[in-house]
């Protein structure tokens, strides 16, 4: 799925990474606990979270993720967006709740690879 499609499925604003909207991502992971995200890697392209602090962006960087989606109308700080830009991570913000956002993406074919690992 393209990042562009994720944005449109979730009615999300693109806060940075406009030029990356045509990048393909294979799978996603939704969590507010960063160690859980770090536990189950396997080329997950998207992190969906309601947590807002710079460690969210660093976690995505560590995992080589291409996109972070903030749910529940959470807005990242300017500092976080700088960090994301610097590391080529697209940042989206949606007013969907976590359950709804994950459900929409999953139903549209964006899987998770976490099961293979956990």
């Amino acid at each position: 799925m393209k990042i562009r499609e994720i944005a449109s499925l979730l009615g999300a604003d693109v806060l940075c990474g406009e030029s990356q909207l045509d990048e393909e991502v294979q799978s996603a992971c939704g969590s507010d606990m960063m160690s859980d995200v770090l536990a189950f890697v396997k080329d997950q392209g998207v992190l969906i979270t309601g947590l807002v602090n710079p460690q969210v962006i660093r976690t995505a960087m560590m995992m080589d993720m291409h996109c972070v989606v903030f749910v529940r109308s959470k807005r990242p700080t300017a500092e976080m967006l700088e960090l994301a830009k610097e590391h080529h991570i697209a940042v989206l913000a949606s007013c969907s709740r976590m359950y709804e956002a994950c459900g929409k993406l999953y139903a549209s074919g964006l899987g998770s690879e976490a099961c293979a690992n956990g």
Binding site: M33, M34, S35, D36, A39, L51, N53, Q55, T59
Partner: peptide, 17 residues
């Protein structure tokens, strides 16, 4: 710390993994 997304008790196990 949990409110900041850490403290799930997965850090040391992740390091081992």
């Amino acid at each position: 710390i949990r409110a900041l997304g850490f403290g799930a008790g997965m850090g040391l196990p992740n390091m081992k993994r």
